[in-house]
Amino acid sequence: MLLPLLHTCPTCPSVLGITLYPPSLLLIAVPTIVYTLALRRLAQRGRPVPTSWVIAFYAGMLSALIALAGPLDTWNDELLTMHMAQHLVLIQVTAPLLLLGRPVQVILRALPPQRAGLVTRLLLRPIWSRRVLEFLTRPLVATGLSILALVVWHFPALYEEAVLRQSVHDLQHVSFFGTALLFWWPIIDPVPRHHRVSGLWASLMVFITAVASTVIGAILTLADEVLYEPYRYAAMPWGFTPLVDQQVAGLLMWIGGGTLYLVIILVLLARWLLREEGRRMASEPAG
């Protein structure tokens, strides 16, 4: 049985599973074009950026395309599993990859010094803006906000509204992605200001978020009834039933998302231990 090409935006055309929803396409196209032009200008000046930045940014934009305009978005009204995958991609893949691409650094480097200084002053000169940014990117605050968004949006009433109304769905995406950027910011430190948390703190942040995510996934997996009403009556492909779909979505969040978080924790801990060992060896007297 073929997946029906339906979406909460019924007037938006769909081509080969790609939903031509203008806001999503603009949010993907505009940053990609600006980043590309910035890279080109830096290359012309003989100031190329690390290849790892470029790969991370374009990989992040590709994941955003798949999540916001690709099959995960086109078919998330029919399968909770697709909807869950969409959110996990935005939170666990797109957000950290884009920050690893250092778009703020790349764009500011590409601007003439006067303009770059003007932009920086406009954004950071006001004391209130600096304090707000510093507060939102504190490890505990950023972690708390990301967990709050995750928990609140999985209440049936709000989740059902997001499935049925495009404006609420857009708000859901903004809150998930925005809090994900805040969460990953102090871990990645995309604009170096010596605010990056230690590997131990970063691991703790990821662990706490992983626990919250896996609890929600477990609830969905182990529930003996369909929790989200719109999926109870959706025309499901592949012989799925609404309850099986919910269980698969829960497992995706529980096992899939949890495994990715575990890998990230191990990487962060390994980097922290290696760094600490390097500092210890550097502090030991020679001979």
Rank of each mutant, 00 (worst) to 15 (best):
V30T: 11
A59L: 15
W53L: 06
V168Q: 09
R102M: 09
Q92Y: 06
L79I: 04
I91C: 00
S14E: 06
Q247C: 04
T241Y: 13
G144P: 08
E134A: 15
H83I: 00
R196F: 04
S175Q: 10
L100E: 03
A210K: 13
I28P: 02
L80T: 03
W128A: 12
P10K: 13
L222S: 12
L27Y: 04
H173G: 03
S24V: 04
H83R: 15
V226Y: 09
L122W: 13
V168R: 08
M84L: 05
H87M: 10
L145W: 04
P237H: 01
L200P: 00
G70K: 02
I33K: 02
W238A: 09
S63I: 03
V267M: 14
R115S: 12
W184Q: 06
P139W: 04
L243I: 15
A29V: 13
L136A: 05
P126C: 04
P96T: 05
H87V: 04
W75A: 01
A270P: 01
L26I: 14
D77H: 07
G287S: 13
L251H: 07
V119Q: 08
T120V: 07
G101H: 10
A95P: 05
Y261M: 10
T74L: 05
G117E: 15
L3G: 00
A64M: 12
G144S: 10
L42I: 11
F240A: 01
L243K: 05
S146N: 10
R40K: 11
L164M: 05
L182P: 11
L266W: 04
G287P: 00
V119P: 02
P126H: 03
G278S: 09
G287T: 06
F57K: 07
V30C: 03
